[in-house]
Computed example of a mutant assay.
Amino acid sequence: MSNLTENRLSNIFKNNKKKISIYLTAGYPNLTDTVKLLKILESAGVDFVEIGIPFSDSVMDGPVILNSHKKALENGMTLDFLFSQLEVIRKNISVPVVLMGSMNPVYQYGFENFCKKCGDLGVDGLLLPDLPLLDFKKYYQDFYQQNNLAPIFMISPQTSPTRLAAIDEAGAGFLYAVSSSSTTGSSTKMEDNIGYFEKLGNLKLKNPVAVGFNINTKNDVRIVHQYADAAIIGSAFIKEIEYEIDESRIIKFINGLEN
């Protein structure tokens, strides 16, 4: 997507500073917490945020994030309610925002309408892991471009060089590199993935690389930052806010990840 207009997401990768991103589930732990968390994460210095759209049948997530989806849906979170929350974010929040979720609720909303709403609200990128690359290029690419949304795709250790090149060419913002073949929140050690990270670092990809899945500690972040542009923390953060949202505790958690 060479004609994507620069947005907040593309701008943050212009410098060489290693980035930290946080994943949160919309409507978790409480229905109205999404914007509150965005404000806290921005004040804590997080570089960009992924907001997960809760869905009952997510296949990539481990028990921690799956439980957060279940709780958010029980709280009453819907796409319409999430969009109503995000209407205010660009009045005082500048951190780049990526929406992440399954295609099912997007299809139900209407893909063109979904992209337009995201563009109107100041969302910077979309990560829809079950959107096939060929379908994106054939049916949906124009909707992304019209609304200045970065199409973000996932790659994994099993992604072939040919497919990786095609994904890199079609994508923008960053490539989401799954650290291993496990689900989110597993006990896989980051040290076991160094060979994969080195391989990615040697490919001279067009897009920055952000690594996610199973990043829990400062040492995990340090390893990722040696080889990639950003580290994405999901399950570990969801655990931090399971019972309450404490701003000082969240800031301490974020500071504890930095090297």
Rank of each mutant, 00 (worst) to 15 (best):
M1V: 09
S2E: 15
T5R: 09
S10M: 15
I12F: 01
K17P: 08
S21F: 06
T25F: 06
N30F: 13
D33M: 03
K36F: 06
K36G: 09
G52H: 07
P54T: 11
P54I: 11
S58R: 01
V59F: 15
V59T: 15
N75V: 00
L79S: 06
L79Q: 04
F83I: 13
Q85M: 11
N92Y: 05
S94D: 15
P96F: 10
L99H: 05
S102L: 10
P105S: 13
V106A: 00
F111K: 01
F111G: 04
E112G: 05
F114W: 07
C118N: 09
G119F: 06
L127T: 03
L128V: 15
D135W: 09
N147Y: 06
A150G: 05
F153H: 00
Q158A: 15
T159H: 03
S160L: 07
L164F: 12
I167T: 00
D168N: 14
E169I: 00
F174A: 01
L175P: 01
L175C: 04
T183I: 03
M190I: 15
E191R: 10
N193V: 12
I194Q: 02
G195V: 08
E198M: 14
A210I: 02
V211T: 12
F213P: 02
I215K: 11
K218R: 15
K218E: 12
A228E: 04
D229L: 01
K239S: 09
I245C: 02
S248H: 09
I250A: 03
I251S: 01
I251L: 02
K252V: 14
N255K: 14
N255S: 14
